[in-house]
């Protein structure tokens, strides 16, 4: 293979030069693509492994879209709200007016939680401690959406909320996590007020690094009393 060709092929993760004929790709290339899609499908429809979350003593809550994945996918509006029983439980087990309230949700990728939470979450807690931020009882939310933080903000009145949530999986990486955060999220918070560290995964933003960086960002938005477009 010429060095020029090699350099070109190395410069992109696109599936190039896969063999087969001009009409159909090689069997191997086709099945590899299907396998990667299968992994993406399975992580959307799969479940979080409770053992992974056990060390963190989370309280488990449900969104209003927790009944089935079909409802979750078709009704993002319901994923933004807590089931009434869960809202009660949140108030019962939660702490009012803390610095940082942590939420964890499977979102669109259960594997994102399974693979990354054990690294990113302890690193985040450590970082918050260093910055002198209080982080009370955290919650796991089944089938949540990012904007669910608004209801939690209303009910517990923390200074900031962060939600670790599985991203929509791509074929290159079905286990990518996002951390969305916002200063005082409330009903009516607009998307531009939220901030995000995305692509947290072994191949993307390293989870340990993301956790540490996120603590610093929490300190910043709390000190500035603003996030997103309001943060100048």
């Amino acid at each position: 293979m010429s060095s020029q060709l090699e350099q070109l092929l190395k410069s992109t993760p696109a599936r190039l030069h896969v063999g087969g004929s001009v009409m159909r790709p090689s069997t191997q290339a086709m099945l590899k693509m299907w396998a990667d899609h299968a992994a993406a499908m399975d992580t959307v429809f799969g479940d979080v492994n409770p053992q992974v979350l056990e060390p963190f003593d989370l309280v488990w809550l449900q969104s209003r879209a927790a009944e089935t994945k079909k409802i979750y996918l078709a009704r993002p509006d319901l994923g933004r709200l807590l089931h009434p029983d869960s809202a009660e439980l949140l108030v019962e087990k939660g702490t009012q007016g803390a610095d940082v309230q942590v939420l964890i949700s499977n979102g669109l990728s259960s594997e994102a939680i399974n693979e990354n939470i054990s690294d990113v979450y302890p690193a985040f807690l450590q970082s918050c401690k260093q910055y002198g931020l209080s982080v009370p009882q955290a919650f796991y939310i089944e089938n949540g959406r990012v904007a669910l933080m608004d209801e939690v903000g209303e009910l517990l009145k923390p200074k900031a909320v962060v939600i670790f949530i599985g991203e929509r999986p791509g074929l290159a990486n079905p286990a990518s996590l996002s951390a969305y955060f916002c200063y005082q999220p409330r009903k009516g918070t607009i998307e531009a007020e939220r901030m995000v560290i995305s692509n947290i995964s072994q191949q993307g933003t390293p989870p340990l690094e993301a956790g540490a960086h996120l603590g610093a960002l929490m300190r910043k938005i709390i000190d500035k009393q603003a996030s997103g477009i309001n943060l100048v």
Binding site: T12, P13, A14, R15, L16, V18, P25, A29, M33, D36, G170, L171, A172
Partner: peptide, 8 residues
């Protein structure tokens, strides 16, 4: 059309 139908 994109390489193997997968947009990276």
């Amino acid at each position: 059309a994109i390489p193997m139908g997968d947009d990276c």
